[in-house]
Design a protein around this nucleic acid. Structure first.
Lengths: 140, 140
DNA sequence: CGGAATCCTAAATGATACTG
DNA sequence: CAGTATCATTTAGGATTCCG
């Protein structure tokens, strides 16, 4: 029996996939940055709780309140990854109950600008997309 | 036994989350549009296989080749959702083995422009992010 | 208050085989 | 060629509990 079957093909596909990622390396960063909570946190820190204000530092619990429904786990996780990427800074003040605030860095602000564009696109074309969906579904 | 425990709290969280989505409705579209394969397909159709060319129609199998590693399932699924959203058009020609091509619509092109910006951001700041990650990790 | 650790569920994703 | 159907797996996400 030849050794050329499923295992090889799988390895091959992986290799090709990695080759594609190597060709478009930004996809990896893009993927990391496109996460659900990443966008939301970025949005909150960049636009304030009202979704359209100015960037300002926010506390952990405040973020938790604004992004209602987020579990502490996801919030920590997201904030930590953003801090690791240098998009936010964490500031801990040693008051009696500890006070921790998160704020966008310049890098984070620049990304927020881009994300904001994507958000604007979403807002601008939401009706159009919805209309397409409706007509598509009605045919089915 | 009171009926106020896990189930209620879960429902409550859901409700709050929905409330937040209602406040920022574009997040839904944003989330749909930020999917891994969505970005990749959009990229391929918008920039050609080389990742930096011009938009042009591509065949199903060609997309499968370019996005090496994608399963037929994910490819179909992604293409169908994009078609449903009105971002791509599917054209089937009744040749002997069927020929099917996918192409960006104007709407899809406009999104591709925005995604391209995000990609550019990723490319431009990749080193910076990597540096931040490295220094962050070295402290830990 | 701000998180870390643990356990668990559901959804996304993928491999594979089969059909028009 | 262009998919669909099914099953296995990975992973994201979330509830809960405890620590500094």
């Amino acid at each position: 029996m030849p050794t050329t079957t499923a295992a090889e093909q799988r390895a091959d596909a992986k290799a090709q996939y990695n080759a594609y990622l190597a060709a478009c390396p930004s996809q990896q960063l893009l993927a990391r940055v496109s996460g659900k909570w990443v966008t939301l946190v970025l949005s909150a820190l960049g636009s304030g709780p009202e979704c359209d204000g100015d960037p300002r530092p926010m506390r952990y619990s405040e973020l938790g309140r604004v992004l209602a429904g987020v579990s502490p786990k996801m919030l920590s996780q997201t904030l930590k990854s953003l801090e690791r990427d240098g998009l936010v800074v964490r500031t801990a003040t040693a008051t009696v109950p500890v006070t921790v605030t998160y704020e966008l860095t310049d890098l984070g602000l620049s990304l927020h600008g881009t994300v904001r564009q994507l958000k604007r696109w979403s807002e601008a074309h939401r009706d159009e997309v919805a209309a397409h969906q409706a007509s598509f579904d009605s045919v089915r």
